[in-house]
Nucleic acid binder design. Structure first.
Lengths: 259, 259
DNA sequence: TTGTGATAGTGTACATTTTACACTTTATAT
DNA sequence: ATATAAAGTGTAAAATGTACACTATCACAA
């Protein structure tokens, strides 16, 4: 993939030569000044959202190394040279929580020239949603400490992570109304009350119970299960599950989720 | 900003040392393997949308250099080491069209490992909207040729630019319904019929005239001007303009644009 | 100047969607 | 058996969205 890469390290002002097709063809060659190429660091940062039944929480790590040692930060890491962006983000979260195939979406890339004290490192930010029931956080070599925060608990973070976090919360709020993301934060089988509480937590406003149930059931991709909630103090609630296949079929017919 | 950078070129396996605060403090130092750092190329690509009164058009350039010489491509360029992402995108479009302060939004970052034949170059994609009345395209040192395309006219583009373009069109369609972007594509003063045609072109479906006018005027941020359209063949239409200040005030009151 | 043609501009009735609102049911725990 | 706490359900009024067809105005040409 990368050719003549040895040229890169021979000296600071060496240009990288690259030819396409016939190497004799002068026209097919061009020079790119090294100064302009392969100068950037690249990282991914993940805003990992969870839901404990009451509140939306965000997983942060306490940095164990400089820069920003002992600051709390979004989990993130440098991208490996042969790794896709999504793969890097998945890797970060797998190392941290042990979960594979986390639901994840890219939200924005942050690239201010001075955002990293070490040099020009740009970062691609993702939001990730997990079912809290599953997670098991692990300390990593980069982190002293790992902890779930509610939004108001979050203080000053490392790098530009406050800005990234704000963007992530904003995107979660807007996307959760137009895409069926909420289910990623609940157990596979959930009650309608759990779902409603989740939406109320994300959108930060109360929702009328009957209206909510009518709307969400009318969309016709929730399947009512025979089993009911166990371990409830009082009357147990019916369990539902999100039918991905049915949702896909609806999409094909031009349906758009909206809440 | 970047310290000890000379280390970078001394040899392939040298690590970059960085210390924060007191250099005596061992704890505050850490090593990053060179292999993982400053390995990436970074570019921006712009999807430049224009509207000729009938159809949405996209500006493409014909590449004059390898790779993908003589393919059509989105305008883009490598980001300078000390340049912010937005600044780079603005520069690309200023060089191409002579316009400064183009309306622009980041849409997504594309970073597949094999997307660039030269090496690992990731690109941050933007959509940009301009008033066609103003533009004056210029050939650049990178481009043989510059031309507006309608969407169906676009063939196979360089790199992964078809994928980027599709994403851009998708984002334009969804954002134009939730943000007052359309006005960026029309002259400062425009008629309601022009505005309607624009929406019909972007959303690719007919809209009822009376419904459209009622909706858009009810939002209360369009100002009817005294002057009327000139150079019309038949009855001239009233001109309107978008009142940015008024729109801002509405936003503060919790209003959300929706069409 | 007058007539004609093309586009601008307007209002209403009906259908749909959204909202607000309070009581009954059910399983559990005592 | 009974008390309790949470689950679950329907309707009417308001607001919003949609469909639809004619009149008004100016430019141009005769």
């Amino acid at each position: 993939m990368r050719r003549d890469i040895d040229e890169l390290v021979k000296g600071k002002n060496v240009a990288l030569r690259f030819s396409e097709g016939n190497p004799e063809d002068e026209q097919a060659q061009y020079l790119i000044p090294l100064e302009d190429f392969f100068q950037f660091g690249l990282s991914v940062d993940c805003i990992l959202f969870g839901f404990d039944g009451q509140e939306i929480k965000i997983l942060l790590i306490e940095r164990g190394v400089a820069p920003y040692k002992s600051y709390w930060a979004l989990p993130g890491d440098l991208v490996y040279p042969n790794e896709d962006l999504n793969a890097a983000a998945q890797r970060v979260l797998e190392n941290l929580t042990g979960i594979r195939d986390v639901f994840m979406q890219q939200i924005k890339t942050f690239g201010k020239t001075d955002r990293h004290p070490l040099g020009r490192v740009i970062t691609v930010a993702f939001i990730a949603l997990i079912r809290v029931e599953h997670y098991e956080t692990r300390a990593s070599s980069w982190a002293d400490n790992v902890r779930w925060f509610t939004l108001p608990e979050v203080g000053e973070l490392a790098f530009d992570h406050n800005e990234i976090l704000n963007k992530g919360v904003e995107k979660l709020k807007s996307r959760v109304r137009r895409e069926p993301l909420g289910f990623e934060l609940l157990p596979i089988n959930f009650t309608l009350n759990q779902l409603q509480k989740l939406y109320e937590a994300i959108l930060d406003r109360p929702i009328d119970k009957r209206t909510f149930r009518k709307k969400i059931l009318a969309m016709n991709f929730l399947v009512k299960l025979d089993e009911k909630q166990t371990k409830n103090t009082r009357r147990p609630a019916c369990l539902y599950t999100f039918d991905q296949t049915r949702y896909g079929e609806l999409l094909d017919k031009g349906f758009t989720f909206e809440l």
